[in-house]
Design a protein around this nucleic acid. Structure first.
Length: 640
DNA sequence: GCAAGGTC
C-alpha cells in the first residue's frame, strides 16, 4: 500500500492550487466537519527520492491556529494592576474557531508517514508551520516533518517544491513566538493603564464626541480605547510630527536674481547659482553689479550623455508606495488585490523585501510569457529579440522571496478592475527592470554676469527604452537650448530681482507614511497598511482631501485625541535620561533587531523576551508615575 | 474590553 503523506497549507486557496498541480487536476474533495472553508483534497503523487509514490491528503489551516492569552485570573481589567501583566502567566491555546481545523490535522496525521508543511515562506509562515507540526505530532508522535519551500503557485515551481523539501526553520518560528508574547504583554499593560486612567478624564467631558465601544466590530460605532500598540503609536507619531511642523511653520521671504536671454526666438532662463538669499538689500546690490557689468560671459558649455535609470525589482513597500501614487488605491486595497493575484497563481508572493533577482531565475522565460498581451506583448518580444538587460540589483534581500514579478500571463477579462491595475503595474515594472535605461543628452550652460554665476540646463531624450513600458515614470525633453559658445560674451535681455516665500511642508500622505514605517521597521510589509487603517479607525487621525481629479492627494491629519496622546507621552518621557519615546519608533525597531538575532541563532527566544520586557517595563513605570501629564494633554486638547 | 499577526 502506498505511503500516505499529509500536506498542510496556510490558507484554503493555496491548498487547492497546490493540490491541482500535484494531482494534475484530478483529486477528490472532502469537506471537514466543523469548518466550511477548509477542505481535504486527496490524490496520488510521486514525490521522487525516498518517498516515491504516495497517497496525499492536502489540506490547510486558516492563518494561525493558536493564540496567546493571560490565565483566567488576569483577564479582568480590574483583576490586577496593569503593570503585573509584564509577569502574569500566559498560555497558548487553539482558537475556538480553529478547533475543527486542528482536529482535522490530528486525525489525518494519525495515518500519515510524513507531514509536508506548505505555509507561506516567511517568518509568520514558519511559526504557523510549527503550530501545524504540534497538532500533527499530537495525532502521531512519530510523523516525519518536512517543509515545502515555494514563492509562487506556478506549476513547475510547486512540483519542485514538493520534490525538494527542506526543514522547518525553528529560529524564525521562535522569533515570532517572542513577538507574540511581547506584543500581548506590552499592548495589554499600556492599554489597560491608559484606558482606565483616561476614562476618568473623558467621563468628566461626557458632552464630547469621544464614545466608547468596540473597534473591531466594523460597524459605525466610533472609537474606543486609547491604545498604545507598539506599532500604532509610532505610526501616529509620524503623522503628528509632520502636522506640528506644518502648523508651526513660519514662511520666510527670500530674493533671487533671474536672468533671461532671448536668442534664436527662444527664451532661456538662467538660474542663480546661489539659488536665493534672505537679505533683499544684499541681493539688490548683487543685481546692481551684474547690470553694471552689462556683458555676461559664457564660462561653460557642457554637453554630456544623461540617463534615467530603470527601476529596481519590486518590493512590497515599493508596490504600496507606487500603488498609492499611481493606481489611486490605498495600500490596504493594493495588498488585498496582490494577495488575490498571488493565490490565483498570476504573480509571485507579494510580501518581500528583496530588490534583487536571484541568478537562478530564468527571467527571459518570464518575459516570454507576456507575449500574448495586446498592450505590452510586442514590448516583451522586443526584449527577447535583443533588448533584454539583466535587472539592476538593490541592496535588500530577505533570503526568502524574490522581488514581486508576474509568473504567467493572464487575459484582462479574467480580472476585476483593481486586479487589472495591480497586475498591469507588476508586469510593466518587471518588463522595465529587464530593459535598458533611458538615454538622453544633457546640456548645461554656465555664465558669469558681474560677480555672479548662473546656469541653464537642457535635455533631449534620445532613447526612451524602459519608459515605453513603464508609463509611471516621466522624463521629457526640455525646450532645446539655443547655441552658446564657451567664452562668448553677450548682453542678457533681462535681469530682475525675484521675490518668493518658503513654503510649509505638506501634511503626510500615505505613501510617505509607508516609506517612514518601512525605514523604521514598524510593522511588516503585510501589516503596515493595517496599522494605518487602525489609527484612522480609532480616530487618532483623519484623512483630508487636497485638490481634485488627477491632482487629488489624501493627507493624514491627527485628531485632537491623536495629538493629545502623542504630546502627553512625549511629555512623560521627556524626563527620561535616554529619552526614549513611545511615539517614536526606536523601541519597535530595537525589538525587530532582536527578532532578527533570534532568526540568526545568536540570541534565544527567552533572552529576547526578557530584555525587551525590561526595556518596556522601565517606560511603563515611568508612565505610571507621570500619568498626570497624559491626562493634562487630553484635557488641553479635548476641552475646547 | 487589551497586541500584532495570520486569513474567510
Amino acid at each position: 500500500m502506498a505511503r500516505k503523506i499529509l500536506c498542510v497549507a496556510e490558507k484554503p486557496a493555496i491548498a487547492r492550487a497546490v493540490a491541482t498541480h500535484l494531482s494534475g487536476g484530478s483529486f477528490q474533495t472532502h469537506a471537514i466537519r466543523g469548518n466550511q472553508y477548509v477542505k481535504n483534497y486527496e490524490f496520488d503523487f510521486n514525490f521522487g527520492g525516498p518517498w516515491g509514490d504516495c497517497s496525499v491528503t492536502m489540506t490547510s489551516v486558516i492563518g494561525h491556529l493558536t493564540g496567546l492569552d493571560f490565565e483566567r485570573q488576569y483577564k479582568g481589567w480590574m483583576s490586577c494592576p496593569p503593570g503585573s501583566l509584564f509577569e502574569a502567566p500566559v498560555q497558548e491555546s487553539v482558537d475556538k474557531d480553529k478547533l475543527a481545523i486542528a482536529e482535522n490535522i490530528r486525525n489525518q496525521a494519525r495515518y500519515s508517514k510524513a507531514l509536508f508543511i506548505w505555509t507561506d515562506c516567511d517568518r509568520e509562515g514558519e511559526h504557523i508551520g510549527s503550530e501545524v507540526r504540534n497538532q500533527a505530532k499530537a495525532g502521531n508522535a512519530r510523523i516525519e516533518v518536512k517543509r515545502a519551500k515555494f514563492s509562487n503557485t506556478e506549476r513547475a515551481h510547486v512540483l519542485r517544491a514538493a520534490r525538494e523539501p527542506v526543514e522547518l526553520d525553528e529560529f524564525q518560528a521562535n522569533a515570532v513566538a517572542a513577538r507574540i508574547e511581547l506584543d500581548l504583554r506590552i499592548g495589554a499593560a499600556f492599554t489597560r493603564l491608559q484606558t482606565l486612567q483616561l476614562q476618568a478624564v473623558v467621563a468628566a467631558l461626557k458632552e464630547k464626541v469621544i464614545s466608547y465601544g468596540k473597534y473591531r466590530s466594523g460597524s459605525s460605532k466610533i472609537m474606543t480605547h486609547a491604545s498604545t500598540g507598539s506599532c500604532q503609536f509610532p505610526t501616529l507619531g509620524f503623522v503628528v510630527d509632520r502636522y506640528l511642523r506644518v502648523k508651526n511653520f513660519k514662511p520666510e521671504t527670500f530674493w533671487s536674481i533671474k536672468v533671461m536671454h532671448q536668442r534664436e526666438r527662444k527664451k532661456v532662463n538662467f538660474l542663480w547659482k546661489r539659488v536665493h538669499l534672505f537679505d533683499r538689500a544684499a541681493v539688490a546690490m548683487m543685481l546692481e553689479r551684474c547690470l553694471m557689468a552689462k556683458q555676461a560671459k559664457v564660462t561653460k558649455v557642457n554637453s554630456k550623455p544623461k540617463s534615467k535609470w530603470r527601476p529596481l525589482p519590486l518590493t512590497t513597500v515599493d508596490l504600496q508606495m507606487m500603488g498609492s501614487r499611481f493606481l489611486r488605491m490605498d495600500s490596504q486595497t493594493i495588498m488585498k488585490v496582490a494577495e488575490a493575484l498571488y493565490t490565483k497563481g498570476y504573480i509571485s508572493y507579494p510580501r518581500t523585501e528583496t530588490d534583487q533577482f536571484d541568478k537562478a531565475i530564468d527571467l527571459k522565460k518570464l518575459v516570454e510569457k507576456q507575449y500574448p498581451d495586446d498592450s505590452w506583448g510586442q514590448y516583451a518580444r522586443d526584449l527577447i529579440d535583443g533588448k533584454f538587460r539583466t535587472p539592476r540589483s538593490g541592496r535588500h534581500n530577505d533570503k526568502a522571496h524574490p522581488p514581486i514579478h508576474p509568473v504567467c500571463w493572464v487575459s484582462q477579462n479574467q480580472l476585476n478592475v483593481n486586479e487589472k491595475k495591480v497586475y498591469e503595474f507588476v508586469v510593466r515594472r518587471f518588463l522595465a527592470c529587464c530593459s535598458e535605461d533611458a538615454k538622453g543628452q544633457g546640456t548645461e550652460i554656465e555664465i558669469q554676469y558681474g560677480e555672479e554665476f548662473f546656469h541653464a540646463n537642457g535635455l533631449i531624450v534620445l532613447e526612451r527604452n524602459y519608459l515605453d513600458v513603464y508609463v509611471y515614470d516621466k522624463w521629457e525633453s526640455s525646450q532645446q537650448l539655443p547655441n552658446f559658445e564657451k567664452g562668448e560674451v553677450f548682453e542678457p535681455t533681462e535681469a530682475n530681482i525675484a521675490e518668493g516665500k518658503t513654503t510649509a511642508p505638506s501634511f503626510l500622505t500615505e505613501p510617505e507614511l509607508i516609506g517612514l514605517m518601512d525605514a523604521n521597521g514598524i510593522g511588516t510589509d503585510a501589516t503596515m497598511a493595517e496599522h494605518i487603517a487602525k489609527i484612522k479607525e480609532r480616530e487618532y487621525v483623519v484623512v483630508h482631501q487636497r485638490g481634485t481629479g488627477r491632482t487629488k492627494v489624501e493627507e493624514l491629519i491627527p485628531t485632537r485625541l491623536g495629538t493629545a496622546l502623542v504630546e502627553g507621552y512625549d511629555n512623560i518621557v521627556a524626563g527620561l535620561s535616554n529619552s526614549i519615546s513611545l511615539s517614536k519608533p526606536f523601541l519597535r525597531k530595537e525589538m525587530e533587531l532582536r527578532m532578527l538575532e533570534i532568526c540568526a541563532g545568536t540570541k534565544t527566544r527567552q533572552e529576547v523576551v526578557q530584555q525587551s520586557l525590561d526595556m518596556y517595563r522601565e517606560v511603563f513605570i515611568h508612565t505610571q508615575r507621570r500619568i498626570e501629564m497624559l491626562k493634562a494633554a487630553c484635557r488641553k486638547y479635548l476641552v475646547e
